[in-house]
Design a binder for these strands. Structure first.
Lengths: 225, 225
DNA sequence: TACATAATATGACAAATATCATAAAATATA
DNA sequence: TATATTTTATGATATTTGTCATATTATGTA
């Protein structure tokens, strides 16, 4: 089994603030798991006994609304950590984590993390900073959700995914999501999302091939009204 | 000037986790200010050199959207702390804090707080827990904003304010907000908020007297479709 | 390959919400 | 108290968005 000390992914999250000794302990107690596309890592209401560090792949964090629709709250990718909020508050998870493509994640037990939070101020400060960043993102999303049109939100989402995940060799977004996923990021009906994508296509802002999407004009998308 | 050691308000926030010595230092370096209704404590983009502990009164934390409308992200009341997120991330404030009624707030300089975060794991853990709670609230709000109707959101807001702020001697909500404030909490046009309030009144869910609102049927409000 | 299944696409229509106009009431101010 | 100003209220209408129906295309599987 591979060691955390040699894992590059760690540089992208709070684990980089651990001392060599702490990291070795984490490495010794962690377990690595393969998660197949579509499978859940954990579900809303689950008690989490640790956190997950994403070695590879992407997952969506969603919450089921009373109307029966899932809302995507966040996308987490390679280097991300999920489950910290729940671990810190000691409450069951507020969100469901579902693999958007095949993933490899490392589970680190709660006891080790809590101990490091208590002993290592650099680590706890870094976790605090990441949580602060999440909170800012969440607040900003809330404002957009409240004040922007569906069209604007979908345009922003496309640009965001372009920026965050880049393009493949053919120019298509490297992260392929279903139209339903787009709809539940944007907070709209799947048909509405599809309709607006068609419109963007006619306007030359994007092009598509099956479910794959190519961004043709980022700035144009950001100008959508 | 009054001392933090004797301040009850502290019990409601992370400052309760400080040691006696730390608290005395905070008390020595803090400054108390009066903020009049409608005045800003800080604005979006301001660099904050500390955090504010609310001794009395209520403020709204808002963000201006590109469409020119303010969105309320959070209401903070007596015992609450504002500005922590910005202090921790080291970024300018993401939100504007405006007094909804007359307030008294204590400003604690950044240097003192940072030092305590570094030295006192109980304190940093408590700040972390509060941030985790804020994050959960923000995520939940996001889901509601995306998936619930304006009517449901306004009903939920009324119940929330009833729970959080209670009623005055005449049964009216103890926190009086303008219809415009309600609209920018719910994320709708002021006219829509007013229209729906009128509807709730006809249904006997609330009653009003000027801008004052009395909740007549909490459970009924929560059942609104 | 052929079939079944799921995902995407689009039309028609209904419902929700925003906008503009204007009136009435409440509140602040002289 | 009288007046000006703001806030609340409501109607008319336009726009946005959701829902249901159905066709088409893509994708997985035997």
């Amino acid at each position: 089994m591979s060691k955390c000390e040699q894992c590059i992914v760690r540089q992208f999250n709070s684990l980089k603030a651990l001392t060599k000794e702490e990291l070795m302990r984490v490495s010794a107690c962690k377990t690595t798991q393969i998660v197949k596309k579509g499978d859940n890592i954990f579900e809303e209401g689950d008690s989490l006994n640790g956190i997950y560090c994403i070695r590879d792949g992407v997952c969506k964090l969603t919450k089921l609304s009373e109307n029966g629709k899932d809302q995507v709250v966040k996308l987490a990718l390679k280097g991300g950590m999920i489950g910290q909020r729940s671990l810190i508050s000691g409450e069951p998870s507020n969100l469901t984590a579902t693999a958007v493509n095949d993933m490899q994640v490392c589970f680190v037990p709660k006891s080790e993390i809590i101990q490091d939070l208590q002993k290592n101020p650099d680590f706890s400060m870094d976790v605090l900073k990441n949580m602060a960043k999440d909170l800012k993102n969440s607040d900003d999303q809330l404002v957009d959700m409240a004040q922007k049109t569906v069209k604007q939100r979908l345009a922003n989402t496309l640009v965001y995914i372009h920026q965050k995940f880049g393009s493949d060799e053919n120019g298509f977004l490297a992260l392929t999501l279903s139209r339903e996923d787009y709809a539940s990021i944007v907070g709209t009906a799947t048909e509405s999302a599809i309709r607006i994508l068609s419109q963007f296509k006619k306007q030359g802002l994007i092009s598509t091939k099956g479910k794959q999407i190519k961004i043709e004009d980022d700035t144009g998308l950001l100008r959508v009204e």
